[in-house]
Design a binder for these strands. Structure first.
Length: 222
DNA sequence: TGCCAGGCCCTCTTTAGGGCCTT
């Protein structure tokens, strides 16, 4: 598989949380993130996070993370600085990114460190370039695309690693399909927002434009 | 007792409703 099409450094992130909504008081209970540089996983970040209250039995069952584990974990305030350092100024990637983005922004806001994040979404892109799959759950995509994994789901680092593998597979497939020699993050971000009937036209046009312009390989949007 | 997410996307749509995806 040709991963060298991805010259831009990105951070793939996944959160396990106490529920679905930070607006309802839910908090992050585990952070997993991997840094992709030159098409390879170059670094990783993982920590449990004590939410300051007992999580439900349902969350314990879904994630395998129990309250005893969380009781011994550091608080969000203690780990968000390390996460910010790991992210740096790189763009972010997640599966169903709106979910992880709202929790990331909420946790940063609670520590008084508001900042914008630029997210790419593997769910949105997969729906556009793999239109005939039965569903677009991360687990389904990993299995149908034959991506490497340890068989574990709903743990933050494992999910981040599989999302990273999916991100790289998407880049590889687009390279083969449209002849990209490099695919900037921003192109993939725009692809995730392109109306379905216009996806093929967008990619063909973008591929032609990139062929006539040298790629920016600075590795960051900022 | 009844409430308990939100954004995206499709369709039997647009003066709406419901499924999907994340935990």
């Amino acid at each position: 598989m040709n991963y060298t099409l991805c010259n831009e450094t990105v951070v793939v992130i996944d959160f396990e949380t106490s529920g679905m909504s930070p607006e309802q008081g839910d908090r992050v209970i585990e952070i997993g993130a991997v840094l992709i540089r030159h098409g390879k996983v170059a670094d990783s970040f993982q920590t449990l996070v004590n939410p300051g209250f007992l999580v439900s039995r349902e969350i314990e069952m879904v994630t395998g993370i129990n309250n005893r584990m969380l009781n011994e974990a550091p608080s969000a305030a203690a780990v968000m600085g390390d996460l910010a350092h790991f992210i740096g100024t790189h763009p972010l990637v997640a599966h169903n990114a709106s979910f992880d983005q709202k929790f990331l922004e909420s946790e940063f806001a609670l520590t008084g460190k508001k900042r914008p994040f630029n997210f790419g979404c593997t769910l949105k892109i997969a729906r556009r370039i793999y239109p005939d799959l039965p569903n677009y759950k991360l687990e389904t995509l990993v299995k149908l695309k034959g991506l490497a994994g340890n068989g574990q789901f709903h743990r933050a680092l494992a999910d981040a690693e599989m999302t990273a593998a999916l991100w790289l597979r998407i880049i590889s497939d687009l390279g083969q399909r449209y002849g990209f020699t490099d695919i900037p993050f921003e192109t993939l971000n725009k692809l995730g927002k392109t109306p379905y009937p216009q996806v093929d036209q967008f990619l063909q046009k973008t591929a032609e434009e990139l062929k006539s312009a040298p790629p920016d390989t600075t590795g960051s949007l900022f």
